[in-house]
Nucleic acid binder design. Sequence first.
DNA 1: TAAGTTTAAATCGTATACGATTTAATTCGA
DNA 2: TCGAATTAAATCGTATACGATTTAAACTTA
Lengths: 205, 205
Amino acid sequence: MLRDRVKEYLLKQIQRNNLQVGKTINLAALARQTQISVTPIREALSQLEESQLIKSVPNRGFIVPELTMSEAKNLYETVSQLEILALESAAIDERLVGKLKKQQLLLQQAHSPLTRLNERFKFHDLLVENCQNTVLMRILDTLKSRIRFYEQLLVKDASFYENSDNQNEGIIRAIEEQNIPTAALILKMNWMLVSDYVVAQLQKK
Amino acid sequence: MLRDRVKEYLLKQIQRNNLQVGKTINLAALARQTQISVTPIREALSQLEESQLIKSVPNRGFIVPELTMSEAKNLYETVSQLEILALESAAIDERLVGKLKKQQLLLQQAHSPLTRLNERFKFHDLLVENCQNTVLMRILDTLKSRIRFYEQLLVKDASFYENSDNQNEGIIRAIEEQNIPTAALILKMNWMLVSDYVVAQLQKK
DNA sequence: TAAGTTTAAATCGTATACGATTTAATTCGA
DNA sequence: TCGAATTAAATCGTATACGATTTAAACTTA
């Protein structure tokens, strides 16, 4: 269905940092870009509205929502808890540690802020890769898409990643030792680190 | 916007148990019922699809998803955790205990399974009434809408409510004593009670 | 020159048209 | 009579039309 294709397209645009906060999505332009007429485009955008990735303003159209401190706090609080739940309910697979280490290397070798951010999200996705709760995973995916807007705009500082990298290594070590409560605790601290950083950056604006 | 009105209408229909599991939503009929043309109806249904309350099947339309054991388990696991998070982060207001007691009375006086179910959901909504995390509350609302399908169809037995009522009273008592960890624990047990009951009923089918 | 007003163009949200697909009803053959 | 084939009707998903609203451009006035 065309609606699904448009939604996929827009989610990819989000990952590539091609949807700017505050920007109105021009339906005619998007129809030309995708060669799909506006009806399924509107349906897809309505879905993204439901996910809070897009908001609609009557007679003005679909707009990428501005960033707010309260939303940031709420998002990070919720994601943190849900990701811990997913980690705790996932089957730990012995190849996971290898994958995490490899991913952490990729993260550290990333050259641009956007690549680094994407690798960081992949690291988190790996942590919960084996979680079988599809309801939970779907919610997490959606929330993380919204979080991308915050981090794409606000997390550029390489020094931030040093602290985060240390925590990621701590998480890997804990998982290697099958010590899930410690992994969960460090994971929570990691999300708090990002949350505090994002909130501080928002306060400067 | 008409899309929002259709969505509200359909969410109300869900609460009233007027959307049957497995039923295909007839767009022309809904357009006649609501006096709204199919374009905003499809947009609203696309949104409900995004929430997993409705699924779309190509060339057949929008259908209320069947109930499954795995979805039930996943839903209850996730709702339980999120509601506990919301309870723990809510400001406890001294009028809350009074409201909960009153609501519990309404629950116990309800004459029909559907009324009783709706009162039970209101009880749960009251528990988290003061939670300021709008991201979390929105997710909870959506998940609970989906859970209604399970409970409308499967939870009819009055004896189930006796156990649930006892737990509700335990939760009220714990909150009255400002003992949130205990309230959270009983709340978790309450969701497990429902989950186990629903899963058992599904197993009979 | 800046602010206000008017006009023109662009865009939005909804209704409607229409080809494709599914469902229902009817017919045919064993 | 039952199952398969054919026909008809209903419905779906998408494209397009169009009135309403917003935005942009042009004009006027102080």
